[in-house]
Design a protein around this nucleic acid. Sequence first.
DNA 1: CATACATCGCAGCGATCACTGCGTTAGCGA
DNA 2: TCGCTAACGCAGTGATCGCTGCGATGTATG
Lengths: 188, 188
Amino acid sequence: MPATSSARRTDSRPGGRSARVRAAVHQAVRELLTDEAGELTIPVVATRAGVHATTVYRRWGSVGELLADVATSRFSGDIVVPDTGSLRGDLERYAYDLAKDLCDPDTLALVRATIGIGGEQGAAACRGERQRQLEAILEREQARGTQPPSLERTTDAVLAPLYYRAVFTNDPLTPDWTHSLVAHLLPD
Amino acid sequence: MPATSSARRTDSRPGGRSARVRAAVHQAVRELLTDEAGELTIPVVATRAGVHATTVYRRWGSVGELLADVATSRFSGDIVVPDTGSLRGDLERYAYDLAKDLCDPDTLALVRATIGIGGEQGAAACRGERQRQLEAILEREQARGTQPPSLERTTDAVLAPLYYRAVFTNDPLTPDWTHSLVAHLLPD
DNA sequence: CATACATCGCAGCGATCACTGCGTTAGCGA
DNA sequence: TCGCTAACGCAGTGATCGCTGCGATGTATG
């Protein structure tokens, strides 16, 4: 059989068997997290994903590692670093995007569960690329010739309130509020 | 003295049998949380506490409710609202105390686990009285005749960074850093 | 086309979990 | 002091979990 237009189904590429199983398991985890009633155990996840629990046990080992994997793939590369031309514009856009992301109950449940089970490592997976994205924004401002606030200060003023309000409270993350965070960081 | 026949709480005083069991179970939960290896399940907690699992099942029902109870009693009334005479002094003292509290690995593990399992309700238990204490500090300043920052603003500037850094990062909560949080909130 | 390898499904195993009647004990009120 | 009631200990049950050989299936390579 000529392999011309025939689909190249390598297992490690999107569409392969292993990738399909991984995607199904990830989606099952996210669904069970939103349900809140589900116990989020390996057999339950496997059944929901349509695969056998054996597969999940062998590929991930424990619920903690599975959650960390889901969180990592969830919080990696889905927020593009904005470039609006000014630091204020970049931060406002960044804060707005992050707020919209954290508002999703699905995402929020994933963050909480990952922190609770994964501990230190899970928390790191939840921060994901946020810190690096913030750093990139500040470095870009520095390249423009202006001295931006430090990464620590920006984290305290923007990132921390967003995560705190989302994870610990019920208050909505409104655009006005995210705007005010940047306004307090950058007076003028 | 109310003459209610059914509302007689025989065992609610400190030192009673019920109180001893409660204290033992709470301590077992905290110990197992620090171990991190423990599975934090009802039978394990009960064995560690020296009581029977039946008792734990009947009094708390689930690990989530048990954790919420531990968190509530842990985060209630152990930080006295300071009164240094000035808003700045009050906030600095408050931030320092809270940072010292959140630095404890035991407390941190409790916060993470409670959030992860208890969800919205667990998160509320972890905030505990912090928000009200902050509100009390601000109200006292208002009684002094000065207009303090809003509760929302103070939460974003002080409370949120403290919780975020403790829960999501490995960075230490140094006194200098907590001091800088208040300094940024209250310029002059 | 044939071989080699990785991944998955299947059945089943000890262990533990969540939960439930029933008898016993501890502590308050009279 | 004595009775009453809530709380606890005990033993046991069905269900589920975590995990492990073994065979089947699909995927890449020569």
